[in-house]
Amino acid sequence: MKTFRYIDGAAVLRLDVEACIGCGICVTVCPHRIFELPNSRAEIVDYNACMECGACATNCPTEAIFVNSDDGCGCAALIIDRWISKVIGKPVSSCSC
């Protein structure tokens, strides 16, 4: 998806290369193709294309990847609901998408 780029540096994505066993599942599942596997260890080659879907972290067998774990698809209305609920302490109504 080189035609669409979002805000650089915004995504929360960390890779612990020490913990990586080189299975390559992150390379397979990423819908934005941001991982590669040179020298049998995962490497982030296009960090700014990350949309925090979390597929890599969910499938990593050694928990070597961390992605922002707030779930949700990220529409503004849902985030506003969440901010309000933090202030008034009411649970968020679930998103309809």
């Binding site: 998806m1 669409f4 780029r5 979002y6 805000i7 915004a10 995504a11 929360v12 819908p31 934005h32 294309a49 990350c50 949309m51 925090e52 922002n68 707030d70 949700g72 698809c73 990220g74 529409c75 503004a76 209305a77 849902l78 985030i79 506003i80 998103c95 998408c97």
Partner: peptide, 19 residues
């Protein structure tokens, strides 16, 4: 801004930042 929820490339952290 609300359309970010329908795109397949916007991160939640990014949406919070722009909001």
């Amino acid at each position: 801004m609300n359309f970010t929820g329908a795109t397949p490339y916007t991160s939640l952290s990014g949406v919070e930042q722009e909001m």
